[in-house]
Write a protein that binds this DNA or RNA. Sequence first.
DNA 1: TTGCTCCTCACGTCACGTGAGGTGGC
DNA 2: TTGCTCCTCACGTCACGTGAGGTGGC
Lengths: 203, 203
Amino acid sequence: MHLTRDKPTESDRLWRVGELAAATGLTVRALHHYDEIGLLKPSAHTGVGHRRYTGADVRRLHQIRALVGFGLSLAEVGAVLDGPPTDPRDLIQRQLAQVEQRIAAAYRLRHNLVDLLRALPDEGEPAAPTLIELIEVMTEMEQALTPQQFAELAEHRRRLVESLSQEELAEMAETRRRLTEQLTPAELAEMRRRRAALLPRRE
Amino acid sequence: MHLTRDKPTESDRLWRVGELAAATGLTVRALHHYDEIGLLKPSAHTGVGHRRYTGADVRRLHQIRALVGFGLSLAEVGAVLDGPPTDPRDLIQRQLAQVEQRIAAAYRLRHNLVDLLRALPDEGEPAAPTLIELIEVMTEMEQALTPQQFAELAEHRRRLVESLSQEELAEMAETRRRLTEQLTPAELAEMRRRRAALLPRRE
DNA sequence: TTGCTCCTCACGTCACGTGAGGTGGC
DNA sequence: TTGCTCCTCACGTCACGTGAGGTGGC
């Protein structure tokens, strides 16, 4: 038999597992894992059991990585790809809510980190105990506290502020002013709310 | 013997593991785990081996959660708390770089999700295959691609656009315009760079 | 006496990482 | 013939979750 065939195109070619790993940035082990759990089984094998991925396999892998990039677990990805067609809007809405929370949390963390960094002297002693105390106070402010913890924290904070020099206090205030300018109105309102709950009344 | 002692203050009291868990939002198992790995061993035990945490233990736990909240692993937390005093600025700088990357990645993801959500019809058929294709295209744009993959993707994208109705295309364009307004200059430049690499020359 | 809390194993989870020891293809 | 790639176990990682089976304190 002497078949006349077109030269194989790019989408016809079979991929070795190492080639696919290199092309996608995954590891060979990850592809083995997808095979093990049935998420991506190569459509072909050589005589000695080497995996050969088809163009369809490659496209499925792209879909898998896209959905993983959207924050789904591998089990969820499998359900989306192989399960009954589900309303994509539900999925996207859930992922959107998750990513909004991640963004908000990351901003609070960045704010704390920047504040902390500016409050530290540029050089000299590491001042590790002060670092720990600052971290402690700033992070506690983000969490829900029991009444006892509120009282302890307020006292802790008072002692901390007393221990700082006038220069350090002035620097922290300036830092806070500069950073406050970068906050959104919603973030400012949230900060004021937290501060009102934390500090004693003045008037 | 008849010692006269002050009434125990809040910081003197011993905490049971369940109380500490409830107060901090951690699980009992998590506290057991910290005990197991030597990160937080309660200073006291009752006769039958029940854990009793002192005020100092509670403060250490706050430090632990603060550092974990900063993105450190438990091993790193232990090293910071028990190791030689290290320069806090290095630590904070590293965490800051990490959180900046997380924020940028989360924004890209959110942008894709919102774009995708608006491009979908408000009701009617789930249109799952189109969802998968859209996700695929949009996510691939974020990644480094091999030349072959570039070619495949451009072709894929061309077929996809051809399959859309004029109304859908107009809606996507409008969506893109609204969302583009919210981007920073740096994000816009990045988008233009990616698009230039992806699309064929027109002139 | 009845719950509630506490205890110690000890295996499970998730998405792979990391060798161990061996075979196949260019 | 020499590397390079491939294969299959199989245990390790990380921060706990989840029972299993039992004891102690109010």
